[in-house]
């Protein structure tokens, strides 16, 4: 079963008499365990698409299924974890208490919570900060807490909206490497919104390139860099080829040049 099926989804917002078409007839399927990035210029509807899948908003037309269920049922079942651009931690809760928030909300017992939190702080490398408060952590550390929180209930799907957007390049690359490792450990499907082409290529199995006004999927690019993605990958030819393929799809360049061994089959729609 696929993790997400978006079928012919459109979304428009009414803004002062005018209507903004944020998404126009978008279809996308994400397989279980697959890592898919959404990339595109500002305002092309990436966040909107993610919010629709998360059922924080509902589509104007079209349908969305998450693990075969309606988006609403998937939300009520906690089938996904979500990470926003800002960490959105509760400043009055300790790091441990922030991570266990979803578990607390869903009535998980105290001992089970404590165990899970111990695993999660370990996973994101923040064990010694478990009893600290968000204000005492750097932006990157806070974002790792948000990721741990999203993973708390072992969701099969992780929705991430520019989670590293506010981080510097070095922290960002380290977080990407950690995300690759965590995804390998949890085997969750990921939909990852980003503005960074190298980030999308480094992380993804597929990169979905979107265009604005109205928001549409312009191309879907397969990135075949394998499962083991270390720091060395960033300097390899296949990585650069992927970056080039995505860039050209973004800027609407001829797609023939994108056909390299790293980016097989640019799937235009």
């Amino acid at each position: 079963m696929s993790a997400v099926d978006v079928i012919g989804v459109s979304k428009s917002f009414a803004v002062k008499k005018a209507t903004v078409v944020a998404l126009d007839d978008v279809s996308l399927t994400v397989k279980a365990g697959e890592f898919v990035s959404l990339i595109g210029p500002s305002g092309c509807g990436k966040s909107t698409l993610l919010r629709l899948i998360a059922e924080l908003d509902s589509p104007t037309s079209g349908s969305i299924a998450v693990f075969g269920k309606t988006a609403r049922q998937a939300r009520l079942d906690q089938s996904y974890g979500i990470v926003f651009q800002s960490a959105g931690l509760l400043p009055w809760r300790s790091i441990a208490a922030n991570i266990e928030l979803p578990l607390t909300l869903h009535g998980v017992s105290r001992t089970a919570r404590r165990e899970r939190v111990a695993e999660l702080v370990e996973l994101v490398g923040l064990t010694e900060f478990a009893s600290s408060y968000p204000e005492q952590l750097s932006g990157g550390m806070q974002q790792r807490v948000a990721i741990a929180r999203a993973l708390a209930e072992r969701p099969g799907l992780l929705l991430m909206d520019e989670p590293f957007g506010a981080l510097d390049e070095m922290t960002r690359e380290r977080m990407q490497a950690e995300l690759v490792r965590m995804c390998a450990e949890t085997a969750a499907a990921v939909i990852f919104v980003t503005h960074s082409i190298p980030e999308a290529v480094f992380l993804s199995d597929r990169v979905v390139v979107m265009s604005p006004r109205p928001g549409r999927i312009r191309a879907v690019i397969d990135i075949a860099l394998g499962d083991v993605r270390g720091e060395k990958l960033r300097e390899e030819e296949s990585f650069f080829a992927g970056v080039t393929a995505v860039r050209e799809a973004l800027h609407g360049a001829p797609e023939s040049t994108a056909a390299t061994n790293a980016a097989r089959g640019v799937d235009s729609r």
């Binding site: 009520l76 906690q78 959105g88 909300l105």
Partner: peptide
């Protein structure tokens, strides 16, 4: 962001 988060958690 907190409102969205709590909605995502179906709180």
């Amino acid at each position: 962001v907190h409102r969205d988060l709590m909605q995502a958690y179906a709180a």
